[in-house]
């Protein structure tokens, strides 16, 4: 049976994910997203993966969530904050699809012996560092290039030309 801590963090994670999508104001939605990301980080802690958990908090909550909040608040417009209406049919179809996928995945999980697997074998930081800096070093370098390219691309996209401004 799952720990109380796990159940609490599961409720926080799934609940704030729903808040992120359903909150009336998009700012509250962004805060809900940050809560959900934090919940996933605590689940990483429960999985004995503290390094990934701290990385998740630093990058997701420290960078992505703050980036979204700043974008929403700096470009403060009525239409951003307002929830766009969805018609009842597409909402029903969306809920049905989401539920169907969740239930199908849940049945697939219940069908296997995953509930009997409780023993963990946590990895140490040294092993992660070794993997990143030896075998997967090319991946790391490509990732660095992608990050640099995406930041430059984002800056170029969102630059306002002087002629455009007036």
């Amino acid at each position: 049976m799952a720990d109380p801590t796990f159940i609490a963090m599961m409720v926080v994670t799934v609940g704030s994910a729903i808040v992120a999508l359903e909150a009336k104001e998009i700012v509250y939605g962004a805060i809900g997203l940050a809560g959900s990301l934090f919940g996933v980080a605590t689940l990483f802690f429960l999985l004995d993966a503290p390094y990934v958990a701290v990385f998740q908090i630093a990058v997701y909550i420290g960078a992505v969530a703050v980036l979204i909040l700043f974008t929403v608040m700096l470009v403060r417009q009525e239409r951003w904050a307002k929830e766009l209406p969805t018609n009842a049919l597409s909402k029903f179809a969306g809920i049905a699809t989401g539920l169907a996928v969740t239930i199908a995945l849940a049945f697939a999980v219940l069908d296997t012996g995953l509930f009997s697997i409780t023993q963990t074998n946590p990895a140490d930081f040294v092993k992660i560092g070794e993997l990143i800096s030896t075998g997967y070093a090319p991946v790391l370098e490509v990732l660095a290039l992608i990050l640099a390219a995406s930041v430059v691309g984002a800056l170029t996209l969102s630059r306002v030309d002087k002629e455009e401004k007036k």
Binding site: A2, D3, F6, M10, T13, V14, A17, S36, V40, L43, L46, L47, G98, L99, V101, T102, L105, A106, V109, L110, T112, L114, F115, S116, I117, T118
Partner: peptide, 15 residues
């Protein structure tokens, strides 16, 4: 906690 608990949370988030 068993592995299935985490996989179920993941399925919920995905849905």
């Amino acid at each position: 906690n068993s592995l299935a608990d985490f996989v179920l949370v993941s399925a919920m988030l995905f849905g």
